[in-house]
Design a protein around this nucleic acid. Structure first.
Lengths: 167, 167
DNA sequence: ATAAACTTTCAAAAATTATTGAAAGTTTAA
DNA sequence: TTAAACTTTCAATAATTTTTGAAAGTTTAT
């Protein structure tokens, strides 16, 4: 496997993984492309490499900037905008976890809280609803908190062998 | 908020959360419905409650059985099949984490491994590709392993206050 | 064997989501 | 101010995913 094949494989795999962290294919592919690029890329270059339209590129780059993982880079003497992505995987993971939590997990936790707080009218079905949604709420809340704490450690939890705790 | 409103809110929230664990809306809603039901439900009952077609119900129930979180329940003297879901949230989390890892994360880790193992031809772009995909591989691999170990603890990690480790 | 009761399949339709491209908008240089 | 260089917007279109429903398949009772 030489460079181009490997590059394409990486971009397409990362693109299809987009769903896993809740973004679309083009957005994930743009991020992937920037992630392995040795220099900032212009809109033109992104369009060319990924064979996508200007509008698509513009919207998805903007979204990546909203997520906080892509930034504009101004090249002196150039009118065009150039883009780079966060290159540190730890920081990337931290930002993604934080955003997903804020956008998707927190609202669900909030709803679960509301549902499991309804008045117990004594019927079996109400008791079951309360019991089960309470269990889910607690699980989701704990998992979310843990994920955030884990990912927010600024020490490198990879090399600190935190794994040992669970072995 | 009384029972029916709460029930609908739960089912629809859980349904839209489906994407987060990689399944479609109907599948998530069926699971949600069974999760708060006090008794096993037939295909008819599921169709009726969620207002979905027979074919849709059949296919999604089958998928939930493939995932291992819904099981057939045979009621003596009845010809119909009845369904129940795993009621324990810990076990549910364990199964979901395991399936997601197997279906989606492992294949990506495998690809990352391949890509970061290409021959270093000495060019800057190849070095960058190798370096960045290696970092992602290590992160993904560690995160996946941790998640599985966490979720496989059969002790109750909620009540064991594992949280304290990260506070 | 037959028929009733039920489940599964799958091609077609509907719904949803992503993408395009051209027009409108913005910024900069002269 | 004008015009060139660039970016953004968004209605239309395309692609993808989900859902339907009726036909085919299966099982069970008689």
């Amino acid at each position: 496997m030489e460079y181009n094949e490997a590059k394409n494989k990486f971009i397409s795999t990362w693109g299809s993984l987009g769903t896993l962290w809740g973004i679309n294919k083009a957005m994930a592919q743009i991020q992937a492309l920037l992630f392995i690029s040795t220099k900032p890329l212009s809109t033109e270059e992104i369009m060319e490499e990924l064979q996508i339209s200007r509008g698509n590129t513009s919207m998805n780059v903007r979204q990546l900037m909203d997520w906080g993982i892509v930034t504009k880079e101004l090249v002196p003497g150039e009118r065009k905008e150039y883009f780079t992505t966060e290159k540190d995987v730890q920081e990337l993971a931290r930002v993604i976890a934080k955003e997903r939590s804020r956008r998707e997990i927190q609202p669900v936790i909030k709803t679960l809280k509301e549902v499991c707080s309804i008045k117990d009218d004594g019927t079996e079905k109400t008791k079951e609803l309360i019991k089960q949604t309470k269990a889910l709420h607690d699980l989701a809340d704990t998992a979310d908190t843990m994920l955030n704490k884990l990912v927010n450690q600024n020490q490198n939890w990879l090399t600190k062998s935190l794994l040992k705790l669970f072995s």
